[in-house]
Design a protein around this nucleic acid. Sequence first.
DNA 1: CTTGTGACTTTGT
DNA 2: TACAAAGCCACAA
Length: 118
Amino acid sequence: MKKRSSARVGDNKGFFERVYEVTKLVPYGRITSYGAIARYLGVEGSARMVGWALNSSHTANGYIPAHRVVNRNGILTGKHHFGNSSTMQQLLENENFTVIDDRVVEFRERFWDPSVEL
DNA sequence: CTTGTGACTTTGT
DNA sequence: TACAAAGCCACAA
Protein backbone atom coordinates (compact mmCIF):
# COMPACT_ATOMS: atom_id res chain seq x y z
CA MET A 1 0.00 0.00 0.00
CA LYS A 2 1.15 3.44 -0.71
CA LYS A 3 1.24 6.24 1.72
CA ARG A 4 1.19 9.44 -0.24
CA SER A 5 1.53 11.74 2.70
CA SER A 6 4.53 13.79 3.72
CA ALA A 7 6.46 10.62 4.36
CA ARG A 8 9.13 9.90 1.80
CA VAL A 9 10.89 6.59 1.68
CA GLY A 10 13.60 6.61 -0.94
CA ASP A 11 15.09 9.92 0.09
CA ASN A 12 17.03 9.95 3.27
CA LYS A 13 18.25 13.47 2.77
CA GLY A 14 15.83 16.31 2.50
CA PHE A 15 15.22 17.89 -0.83
CA PHE A 16 16.49 21.19 0.50
CA GLU A 17 19.87 19.81 1.35
CA ARG A 18 20.34 18.66 -2.23
CA VAL A 19 19.60 22.12 -3.50
CA TYR A 20 22.16 23.56 -1.13
CA GLU A 21 24.78 21.11 -2.32
CA VAL A 22 24.24 21.90 -5.98
CA THR A 23 24.13 25.62 -5.36
CA LYS A 24 27.40 25.49 -3.47
CA LEU A 25 28.92 23.62 -6.40
CA VAL A 26 28.28 26.51 -8.75
CA PRO A 27 31.77 27.81 -9.61
CA TYR A 28 32.75 31.45 -9.33
CA GLY A 29 31.82 33.49 -12.36
CA ARG A 30 29.08 31.07 -13.37
CA ILE A 31 25.30 31.19 -13.09
CA THR A 32 22.44 28.72 -13.29
CA SER A 33 18.67 28.56 -13.23
CA TYR A 34 16.10 27.00 -10.92
CA GLY A 35 14.86 24.68 -13.64
CA ALA A 36 18.39 23.41 -14.32
CA ILE A 37 18.90 22.50 -10.69
CA ALA A 38 15.45 20.98 -10.45
CA ARG A 39 16.15 18.89 -13.52
CA TYR A 40 19.42 17.69 -12.04
CA LEU A 41 17.60 16.64 -8.90
CA GLY A 42 15.04 14.77 -10.96
CA VAL A 43 12.17 17.16 -10.29
CA GLU A 44 12.19 19.14 -13.49
CA GLY A 45 8.54 19.93 -13.09
CA SER A 46 9.17 21.53 -9.73
CA ALA A 47 11.50 24.42 -10.32
CA ARG A 48 9.57 26.31 -7.64
CA MET A 49 10.84 23.93 -5.02
CA VAL A 50 14.41 24.95 -5.78
CA GLY A 51 13.68 28.58 -5.11
CA TRP A 52 11.69 27.69 -2.08
CA ALA A 53 14.56 25.60 -0.76
CA LEU A 54 16.93 28.51 -1.27
CA ASN A 55 14.53 30.59 0.75
CA SER A 56 15.65 28.53 3.72
CA SER A 57 19.27 28.55 2.57
CA HIS A 58 20.11 30.91 5.40
CA THR A 59 19.34 28.03 7.77
CA ALA A 60 21.72 25.72 5.91
CA ASN A 61 25.11 24.98 7.32
CA GLY A 62 27.53 27.15 5.37
CA TYR A 63 27.29 29.89 2.79
CA ILE A 64 24.94 29.35 -0.14
CA PRO A 65 25.75 31.42 -3.26
CA ALA A 66 22.07 31.76 -4.05
CA HIS A 67 22.80 34.93 -5.99
CA ARG A 68 24.14 32.68 -8.75
CA VAL A 69 20.71 31.13 -9.18
CA VAL A 70 18.19 33.01 -11.28
CA ASN A 71 15.15 32.11 -13.31
CA ARG A 72 15.32 30.78 -16.89
CA ASN A 73 15.31 34.30 -18.30
CA GLY A 74 18.29 35.35 -16.21
CA ILE A 75 16.12 37.64 -14.12
CA LEU A 76 16.85 38.12 -10.43
CA THR A 77 13.49 36.92 -9.27
CA GLY A 78 14.65 36.34 -5.72
CA LYS A 79 16.64 39.49 -5.21
CA HIS A 80 14.12 40.57 -2.62
CA HIS A 81 15.12 37.70 -0.37
CA PHE A 82 18.68 38.85 0.12
CA GLY A 83 17.67 41.35 2.72
CA ASN A 84 17.91 44.28 0.36
CA SER A 85 16.75 44.35 -3.25
CA SER A 86 20.19 45.45 -4.39
CA THR A 87 22.19 42.83 -2.51
CA MET A 88 21.81 40.10 -5.12
CA GLN A 89 22.67 42.42 -7.96
CA GLN A 90 25.64 43.73 -6.06
CA LEU A 91 26.95 40.21 -5.52
CA LEU A 92 26.58 39.37 -9.20
CA GLU A 93 28.34 42.54 -10.27
CA ASN A 94 31.07 41.64 -7.82
CA GLU A 95 31.66 38.51 -9.90
CA ASN A 96 32.01 40.43 -13.15
CA PHE A 97 28.38 39.98 -14.13
CA THR A 98 26.39 42.66 -15.88
CA VAL A 99 22.95 43.23 -14.41
CA ILE A 100 20.56 45.50 -16.25
CA ASP A 101 16.96 45.93 -15.14
CA ASP A 102 17.30 42.95 -12.77
CA ARG A 103 18.45 40.78 -15.66
CA VAL A 104 21.87 39.15 -16.10
CA VAL A 105 23.18 40.05 -19.54
CA GLU A 106 25.86 37.36 -19.51
CA PHE A 107 23.34 34.74 -18.44
CA ARG A 108 23.59 32.63 -21.59
CA GLU A 109 27.36 32.84 -21.85
CA ARG A 110 28.03 31.96 -18.24
CA PHE A 111 25.15 29.54 -17.81
CA TRP A 112 26.15 26.50 -15.76
CA ASP A 113 24.00 23.39 -16.05
CA PRO A 114 24.63 20.81 -13.29
CA SER A 115 23.08 18.04 -15.36
CA VAL A 116 25.68 18.78 -18.04
CA GLU A 117 28.72 19.98 -16.14
CA LEU A 118 28.52 17.31 -13.47
C1' DC B 1 -4.99 13.02 5.57
C1' DT B 2 -6.31 17.87 3.76
C1' DT B 3 -5.06 22.46 2.68
C1' DG B 4 -2.10 26.25 1.51
C1' DT B 5 2.01 28.25 -0.31
C1' DG B 6 6.03 29.17 -3.17
C1' DA B 7 13.04 32.93 -5.28
C1' DC B 8 9.44 28.57 -11.71
C1' DT B 9 8.14 27.12 -16.43
C1' DT B 10 5.37 26.59 -20.40
C1' DT B 11 1.56 27.43 -23.25
C1' DG B 12 -2.37 29.96 -24.97
C1' DT B 13 -5.07 34.21 -26.09
C1' DT C 1 4.82 41.98 -26.80
C1' DA C 2 1.99 41.49 -22.67
C1' DC C 3 -1.07 39.16 -19.61
C1' DA C 4 -3.43 35.03 -17.66
C1' DA C 5 -3.82 30.31 -16.36
C1' DA C 6 -2.28 25.60 -15.51
C1' DG C 7 1.18 22.25 -14.10
C1' DC C 8 4.35 20.86 -11.08
C1' DC C 9 6.43 18.83 -6.35
C1' DA C 10 7.97 19.36 -1.44
C1' DC C 11 7.08 20.95 3.09
C1' DA C 12 4.53 23.02 7.24
C1' DA C 13 0.37 23.38 10.02
